[in-house]
């Protein structure tokens, strides 16, 4: 493994974590979507670089899926969606930006400490990748819990899936089956969510998930 090859993989994976932080403090939906699209494009680059470094051309398919689906198509659809729902101007986060960023830093420190210690036996590039991937996964979770808005939560979830794909490609020679199925299930998940959003819109006239809390079967 050459030094440049390693540095580049490191840089790309690290910038994915950086984009997760960027997403964390976006308080408007269009900019959140942009940040997600950029993260997906970076993911595609990271995966493509792994394909070259590992001499595993099939990973290029994953990269292409990431770039077309997650960096282009889904952001376009989401942008159309928020426009048609009339929520493209507002977004509210549950807690302030400061505490959220601090929590994010703690999560990254946690995943670094955990994964780097546990993977001492594995090769360097896999170790770095899996540690970064766990950071992206945990930050994705954090994005999900800090958004009240359904679209924001969905973006958090897809960012989480970006982390999973990074982990999958970092694991040397992981079979193709899984990657395609991951991409495929993201698509399906997205369709399901899309249906949901429309139904929620149809029933509640809002995509604010807080509106869902108004009714519980128990409180009659």
């Amino acid at each position: 493994m050459g030094a440049i090859s390693f540095d580049l993989a490191h840089l790309l994976a690290g910038s994915l974590v950086l984009m997760s932080f960027v997403m964390l403090y976006q308080d408007r939906l269009p900019s959140l979507i942009n940040a997600f699209a950029l993260q997906s494009a970076l993911l595609a680059a990271a995966v493509a670089w792994q394909a070259l470094a590992q001499r595993a051309p099939h990973l290029l398919v994953t990269a292409v899926i990431a770039v077309t689906l997650k960096a282009i198509i889904i952001p376009l659809v989401l942008r159309y969606l928020i426009r048609s729902l009339g929520i493209h101007r507002t977004i509210e986060t549950v807690s302030g930006i400061g505490p959220t960023m601090l929590a994010g830093m703690v999560l990254v420190a946690l995943s670094m400490g955990l994964m780097l210690r546990a993977t001492e036996a594995s090769n360097v590039i896999a170790r770095e990748d899996i540690a970064f991937a766990l950071s992206v996964v945990l930050l994705g979770l954090l994005i999900m819990v800090t958004r009240r808005n359904a679209v924001g939560q969905v973006i958090g979830f897809m960012s989480l899936e970006n982390g999973l794909i990074l982990a999958g490609t970092g694991a040397h020679g992981m079979p193709m089956v899984v990657e395609i199925s991951v991409a495929f299930s993201v698509l399906i998940a997205f369709i399901v969510i899309g249906i949901f959003l429309f139904r929620i819109r149809e029933r509640f006239d809002t995509v604010d998930v807080a509106a869902l809390d108004r009714f519980r079967g128990e409180r009659q």
């Binding site: 991937a133 766990l134 996964v137 979770l141 999900m144 359904a150 939560q153 979830f157 989480l160 899936e161 982390g163 999973l164 982990a167 991951v182 998940a189 399901v192 969510i193 949901f196 139904r199 929620i200 029933r203 509640f204 998930v209 869902l212 809390d213 009714f215 519980r216 079967g217």
Partner: peptide
């Protein structure tokens, strides 16, 4: 309303669970 809330909750928690399982 309740069915949608239930399904949404199930979907979000189920997806997060399943994402952790994949990891």
């Amino acid at each position: 309303r309740e069915a949608l809330e239930a399904a949404w909750k199930y979907f979000i928690l189920g997806s997060v669970g399943i994402a952790l399982a994949l990891f």
